[in-house]
């Protein structure tokens, strides 16, 4: 893959971000305050971490619709264990393991049974959502140990801890995608699965890794979120599914597969974060916010596909 070459499209994304900040900053009092900006990046970190896995999934022409359920379930598992007095690392490991396993199950269904990704992930997500409700009879939990809350809410050198973790995820994902064999194979699989098989590359490895990694990211996001809020309620993961997909799409990850960069998905996550925050400050109810995000996704996907058609049409000329 090419490095971070700034193409026209990327430039456009960056221009939109800048414009967004200027407009919102001048319209909404308090938007540009340090406190609020930190708030935005902290909230965006959850979206961005989910988007890391989602980017890979979409690149191999899949989609992960298990975010809502799996995120809540992992947070619930992890939270309950914490309250039982498990040490933080162990509880977190358990949460991460649950998420990864659920992701691996998705990979298994896609690879071995050829079930379309949207079906298996939707089902797994619903099961996860159900389990999250069952585990604690539908009630929220909270009051976690201080170091755990610090991980979600605290800052080091003025930057939220969540964002260090986010950066770690983004950087690792990006290196994986651009510098390793596995990354090339993931792109290749999105481009032409037949070729991948013919080269003797195992699609099972790719599917397991990608869906498993997505589950892992979702679990991590769930854990951070519960730290940020110092609460787990069983439907906590709800907004993040659409937000993460939107982040990818805004960041230029093609829903047709084979294309996308995680750095730009990160920018997409920030845009979504900014938008949510601005709508919040303006006092717009979260229910409307989902409508906004939905519209953004549709418009961008439509533009993306239109653009693609045009380039295909024109690419053959001189």
């Amino acid at each position: 893959m090419k490095g971070l070459k700034i193409s026209k499209k990327n430039l456009l994304i960056i221009a939109i971000v800048v414009a967004l900040f200027i407009i919102l900053g001048s319209l909404i009092p308090g938007f540009l305050s340090i406190k609020n900006l930190l708030n935005i990046v902290r909230q965006s970190s959850i979206i961005a971490i989910v988007a890391c896995g989602m980017t890979m999934v979409i690149i191999i022409k899949g989609i992960d619709l298990s975010v809502t359920g799996v995120l809540s379930f992992c947070a619930m598992v992890n939270g309950l264990l914490l309250l039982k007095g498990w040490p933080i690392p162990l509880a977190m490991l358990a949460g991460l393991a649950v998420g990864t396993l659920m992701g691996l199950f998705n990979g298994l269904m896609v690879e071995k049974l050829g079930i379309p990704a949207f079906i298996t992930t939707l089902v797994v997500g619903n099961v996860g959502g159900g389990l999250a409700l069952l585990l604690n009879a539908g009630k929220s939990i909270g009051g976690f140990p201080a170091p755990y809350v610090f991980m979600g809410n605290g800052t080091i050198l003025g930057v939220p801890v969540s964002n260090y973790i986010m950066i770690l995820f983004v950087v690792v994902t990006s290196i994986l995608m651009s510098k390793t064999r596995l990354g090339v194979y993931i792109y290749a699989m999105g481009g032409n699965e037949t070729v991948v098989k013919q080269q003797g590359i195992s699609t099972a490895t790719i599917n397991f890794f990608v869906y498993g990694f997505s589950g892992f990211c979702i679990a991590m996001a769930g854990i951070l979120l519960s730290g940020q809020l110092d609460t787990v309620h069983p439907t906590q993961g709800e907004p993040y599914q659409l937000d993460a997909i939107a982040a990818c799409v805004i960041g230029g990850v093609s829903m047709l597969g084979g294309e996308g960069k995680v750095y730009f998905a990160l920018i997409g996550a920030l845009i979504i974060g900014v938008q949510r925050n601005a709508l919040n400050l303006l006092g717009i109810h979260p229910f409307y916010q989902n409508i906004f995000v939905g519209i953004i996704i549709i418009v961008i996907v439509a533009l993306n596909i239109h653009q693609k058609r045009r380039t295909i049409e024109h690419s053959k000329i001189f």
């Binding site: 090339v184 792109y187 290749a188 999105g190 481009g191 032409n192 037949t194 070729v195 991948v196 084979g258």
Partner: peptide, 8 residues
């Protein structure tokens, strides 16, 4: 038939 990954 062509067997290449167009996106690579």
């Amino acid at each position: 038939e062509l067997n290449l990954c167009l996106n690579l």
